[in-house]
Write a protein that binds this DNA or RNA. Sequence first.
DNA 1: GCATTATATAACCAACAAGTTAATTAACCA
DNA 2: TGGTTAATTAACTTGTTGGTTATATAATGC
Lengths: 123, 123
Amino acid sequence: MPDTLSQTFSALADPTRRAMLARLSRGEASISDLGEPFRKRMSLPAITKHVKVLERAGLIIKARRAQQRPCKLNPEALKDVANWMEQYRQYWEESFDRLDAYLKTVTAAANEPKKGDPDEHAK
Amino acid sequence: MPDTLSQTFSALADPTRRAMLARLSRGEASISDLGEPFRKRMSLPAITKHVKVLERAGLIIKARRAQQRPCKLNPEALKDVANWMEQYRQYWEESFDRLDAYLKTVTAAANEPKKGDPDEHAK
DNA sequence: GCATTATATAACCAACAAGTTAATTAACCA
DNA sequence: TGGTTAATTAACTTGTTGGTTATATAATGC
């Protein structure tokens, strides 16, 4: 299913493409710049395909200057991922299993002291 | 390539699986609980496969209680994603195109005032 | 022991992803 | 005009994903 977020996550699910993004986080780069670290391992068409995946996922923007195709990061897709992640922040943050979990237990008990709540885990 | 982060992103690249995670963020759930919203659309084996993908990606932890397999979120994988995202925070945050970009231009100009810098975007 | 409930496995299929080589387009340069 | 550089397209192969149906396992309850 080609919903935007799925496309973005799927584009990120490849170390070559993540390396390309890392490269772009240090500045604009052409296709061959982006591919250079992989040229021993893979052909140029493979590289342009990876770039195209990043582009279709909205993670980069490709321009044209002479024969080159200078690429840069597009914040939009990254922002979408960050927004999606937000809803899970409490789960990965250090304090969750300790203070935060404790606080939720306390407030839940105060609001609704009934036992066997199906949402037990959410505390 | 089955590096952990790629597996995690690839597990997230599916709306069914993201919906399952959303369900789990509101509390523990069994396989059939997780699958219930999709039972009109897909078979049970398809559902257990999705759950298995989430499990192998480290996004959930599956226990056993009688015939059920109660699942819960595993913060570890989410934390890995969040950590990876951190390096791009500046790109998606509101202020980037404005203040931050401006500040980088200024400091770059102070250090190296030459024009047509190939790293222009990084400023 | 037997039926029921919950989940898992096997075998299969269609669609897609990631790579290849070979050929093509497009811009620049002399 | 012709050559070089940068990137793309085409055609193909191979492996993986996401689904199916049918069958099997495993724990519970009578």
